[in-house]
């Protein structure tokens, strides 16, 4: 897998993400049409597949993956499209020649995220109240798994000590809010 593409996918850089999104959009539209789906469904699915792919990348599940980012994206998209078409009861016959055309792309199933528990929903309200700066540092450190040094590189914080101080302060405030 192309590591630069993977980095762009994980980043918050809107322009880089948009470039990736637009890069495969046209090809996915054609791909979806060949399966008999209409444009609006294909584009809905493309957005979902792109989001699922980004999440996989953030969670570090694509690093050792064989094959290209595109094939993985299309694999997720194919599974979602089949699922959506099935729900719309547009059954796709196995002998459908269009299906054969796309045999090269293997469908990949994505498990949906679990719902937040009651406690987590409460924590979320406090998390939002922390403000954008705290949310960013905590998200980068705990969810994205970035090191302090990587956070310095990706944000406008000047050095590691500032990031560390900010992280501790935010966590402390969060704990105070909960008590």
């Amino acid at each position: 897998m192309d590591l630069t593409q993977l980095e762009h996918l994980k980043s918050d850089d809107r322009l880089k993400l948009k470039a990736l999104y637009n890069n495969y959009r046209g090809a996915f539209l054609n791909f979806g049409k060949s399966l008999g789906a209409d444009d609006s469904l294909i584009l809905d699915v493309y957005q979902e597949a792109f989001l699922a792919l980004r999440k996989k990348a953030i969670q570090g599940k694509l690093e050792n993956m064989q094959g290209s980012l595109k094939s993985y994206l299309f694999g997720i998209g194919k599974y979602m499209l089949f699922d959506a078409l099935k729900r719309e009861s547009k059954t796709i016959a196995m002998e459908n020649p269009l299906h054969v055309v796309n045999e090269a792309v293997e469908g990949i199933e994505i498990e949906p995220s679990s719902e937040l528990t009651k406690e987590q929903r409460l924590l979320r309200t406090f998390f939002v109240k922390l403000g954008k700066k705290c949310q960013l540092v905590l998200t980068l450190f705990y969810y994205r798994g970035l090191t302090i040094e990587e956070i310095v590189e990706q944000t406008e914080y000047g050095n590691a000590n500032t990031v560390k101080a900010q992280k501790s302060r935010c966590l402390k405030t969060l704990k105070q809010m909960m008590n």
């Binding site: 995220s113 998390f127 905590l138 969810y143």
Partner: peptide, 12 residues
């Protein structure tokens, strides 16, 4: 762990 999950939800 909860914070991780909440941050994920907000990031989504």
């Amino acid at each position: 762990e909860d914070l991780n999950k909440v941050a994920e939800a907000e990031d989504d």
